[in-house]
Design a protein around this nucleic acid. Structure first.
Length: 309
DNA sequence: AAAGGCTGCAACCGCATGCCG
DNA sequence: GCGGCATGCGGTTGCAGCCTT
């Protein structure tokens, strides 16, 4: 099926977004919520492709995105997940709610791949990716298998060796996956507890912070990009508990395309909410074995520290 | 100090997938 | 069941800033 381009290539602006465009987009989304991207350019007057708007929002303007300075934990988790899942960046990103798939992909391509290559053959080869010829059903089966595999392997990776018990591959997966796997929900909405994931902040505070970022940016593309709203924060290496919390990519992409957004504006999620997310991830990973001994404190990322390069 | 190469990252492109009439 | 539309995803590119010589 030959599809026309998603948007008229003529008369559509391309290239870096200006602060003004960002503001228009943010204002619109603040009012209407993300989704219905097709309508965004016409309603906002932006001379941009709908895809471009969506990308800009999800990769850059969405609140709660942490930029730059990947921590060791994050790095190792990415390496591990990449080995397990291959280049399924959206799936990987679902484990790092503050990071976008694009960010992770870039980081992998520019840092980790090289690091692993030079750092010997310690890194496992990624599994075969989605076979182009596989049918939808096969792909879903494969995906589910991958998820189960990832869960098991992650658990093993995150746990002392002598604690590892033999697993029953599919008994576990059925429960959590249940047709709403992290991947199948595009960015892993199911990973986080609805209460925590179902809301994020897009407050005037964020916008003003964003504008501060633009105002303060000089010379370089914001250290982490042109007019990077969070540039200053990320440059300082703030990797822990950014003050803006949210449901992650999952929330945005989980928002119904033609309906009310799932999130609530103006709510200020707490650190507890963030912890809930990680706890949810951990329990998701471990819930198929209630007797399983796993790390009692700290986050998934903490444990990932053990991953050897 | 200048030039050329390198690096990092935002954004684009095209295909895949999901949803709806 | 089919076709079309909207969105998601991953690969790739372009370019600004940094680094090295």
């Amino acid at each position: 099926m030959v599809r026309p381009p998603c948007c008229d290539k003529e008369g559509v602006k391309k290239g870096p977004w200006t602060p003004e465009e960002d503001l228009v987009l943010v204002s619109y989304i603040q009012e209407h919520g993300p989704g219905n991207w097709r309508a965004v350019p016409t309603r906002t007057g932006l001379i941009r492709c709908s895809k471009s708007c969506r990308l800009r929002w999800t990769n850059y303007l969405r609140p709660g995105i942490k930029r730059g300075n990947f921590t060791d934990q994050e790095e190792k988790l990415i390496v591990h997940l990449q080995a397990l899942l291959g280049n399924r960046w959206a799936a990987i990103a679902s484990y790092l709610p503050e990071r976008t798939d694009n960010d992770i992909k870039n980081y992998w391509n520019t840092h980790l791949k090289r690091k692993l290559q030079s750092g010997s053959d310690a890194a496992a080869k990624p599994p075969a990716h989605r076979p182009p010829s596989s049918s939808k059903g096969q792909w879903e089966k494969r995906l589910q298998t991958d998820i189960n595999m990832a869960r098991r392997a992650l658990r093993e990776a995150l746990t002392p060796l002598d604690d590892v018990k033999p697993q029953q591959p599919d008994a576990a997966g059925a429960g959590i996956v249940g047709g709403d796997s992290p991947e199948s929900s595009s960015s892993g909405a199911s990973l986080c507890s609805p209460s925590a994931a179902g809301q994020y902040v897009l407050s005037t505070d964020n916008i003003s912070r964003m504008l501060d970022g633009w105002a303060s940016r000089k010379g370089r593309r914001g250290g982490s990009g042109p007019g990077t709203p969070g540039g200053a924060e990320s440059a300082s290496g703030c990797s822990e508990a950014s003050e803006v919390s949210y449901g992650g990519a999952a929330v945005v992409s989980a928002a119904p395309a033609k309906g009310a957004p799932l999130f609530e504006y103006g709510t200020q999620p707490t650190v507890a909410a963030q912890q809930t997310q990680l706890t949810a991830i951990e329990s998701w990973l471990l819930d198929d074995d209630s007797n399983y001994h796993h790390v009692q404190s700290g986050s998934l990322l903490d444990v990932a520290m053990d991953y050897p390069f």
